[in-house]
Design a protein around this nucleic acid. Structure first.
Lengths: 256, 256
DNA sequence: GTCCATTGTCTCGTATCCGAGACACAAGGG
DNA sequence: CCCTTGTGTCTCGGATACGAGACAATGGAC
């Protein structure tokens, strides 16, 4: 692609950030240099720049370096700006065109899913899952699809055994163990469903989008009138949603 | 401090990321070059590198560039690793020693607060706000303190007028408008309180930690037996919590 | 107290890279 | 259809920066 030199310091700085992100706790500078195969003086210099810009914090008492608040700001800006939507938008548009049902794209944010794209099918009503709306993840197909792919430990942190689970329209799992049973099914099927938990009379099918490391970062879903679409039609919708989610996963792994 | 050259490409790459984070939507490359005062060829080259590493996404149909999924991963890693904790830890430890009440430090995550430090005072019981536990922000002193400092638009996005508000122990605001009234008081006082919303018989006082741009990123809080601590003592605890939060804010603005 | 390893800073010369500017293509306006 | 502006790619030479390695300070083990 580009014939220019590789802006080595930019590459190295990004490599430092990614390394720090991969570790559960901060690292000493010598470990950073060793793991990345970089000269110590270069690493110290880059750490100084990353610190000055807020991307890295120096824990002087422990002689370690960790991610800084600017990475949090980038992550927050990303969640607000949702560049994933640009990747997912065309895929979702085609899914909606093909199935003639409305669809949406959402990311997990704590216990919630945040809707970042809504694609309304021609002739269908507006949905509650409008852009920037948040809903409890456990009540939605998108949220359940994402939760189903989370590591067990992270799921337990989100939903401790006696944690409160919000209800909506009198539906949805009432306890964390009931939720886990729902997620076992979703993991087995490769997609999640909800019936009337979000909007009475409507159902949704959602499938998770996975990142480079296989972690769920988002979900694609379709919403349709629950009593009009029979089981064979639901199976076809489920297959289409799964395919769309896989397509988005492939796209975010590759070049934007 | 350092006498080395400034690793200009690293600096420029980070500047690009920060610029993209400041904007609500993606930008064309020419706008990035103009706003940062950088040569176009350098910007294209850096964008190519940032894309290859996943920090930037190229929206080809719109000829724009936005933040990529790696920034989301950094932000998530930051939230998990919580470098803030290293900054806040000594400040919280001193607060707890001085007041003899248990304290904690939390960040906002969607509708939840995530507890990243717990500092138990000598002779005090363990609290439900253990590390990695999440609770609904609107029920907790830490969460209310953070919500109180959010821009009104972001608060509305989080709590639309008819959104569900989870209850716990039968307490806490039951509606978004009730929550807003609670937050008006918190904003006026510079700290937030809760009484029994988290643990029956215990109260908490929390104050928000602000980042460079004045946005709330975390909160410091103390928890104490609600019926044992009288009003004058509460005022003194509130002042101590506010001072601790300000100290953490100062520290994250300066060098790590 | 001594020794060794690690942390953090600093210098400077050679190798690398940054950016000016050319070029091709695409998009939008008249 | 033509012209202008913007997008994106590419080359290459002079200027800059990267990294080898020296040095001082600190911390831990004995």
């Amino acid at each position: 692609m580009d014939q220019m030199a590789n802006a080595s310091s930019a590459l190295h700085a990004l490599a430092i950030l990614k390394l720090l992100a991969r570790h559960a706790s901060p690292l000493p500078a010598s470990a950073i240099a060793r793991d990345l195969g970089l000269p110590r003086s270069s690493v110290y210099h880059l750490l100084a720049i990353l610190r000055a810009e807020g991307f890295v914090a120096h824990l002087a008492e422990e002689h370690r370096y960790g991610l800084g608040v600017s990475t949090f700001e980038l992550g927050s800006a990303y969640a607000r700006q949702t560049p994933l939507r640009w990747v997912a938008g065309p895929v979702l548009a085609r899914l909606v065109d093909r199935t003639t049902h409305s669809g949406h794209f959402a990311i997990l944010h704590g216990h919630d899913v945040l809707y970042v794209i809504e694609e309304r099918a021609a002739g269908r009503p507006a949905l509650v899952t409008d852009v920037d709306v948040r809903l409890p993840a456990h009540l939605t197909a998108s949220g359940r699809a994402i939760l189903a792919e989370l590591p067990a430990q992270q799921l337990r942190a989100l939903y401790p055994p006696r944690g409160p689970l919000a209800q909506r329209n009198g539906t949805g799992p009432r306890s964390a163990s009931a939720l886990r049973r729902v997620l076992v099914d979703a993991r087995r099927d490769g997609y999640a469903q909800e019936d009337g938990s979000v909007t009475v009379g409507f159902s949704s099918i959602g499938a998770a989008v996975l990142d480079h490391g296989g972690h769920p970062v988002a979900a694609v879903a379709l919403t349709f009138p629950g009593d009009v679409v029979d089981l064979p039609a639901r199976d076809r919708l489920a297959a289409a949603v799964r395919d769309a989610a896989r397509e988005v996963s492939r796209r975010i792994r590759g070049r934007g």
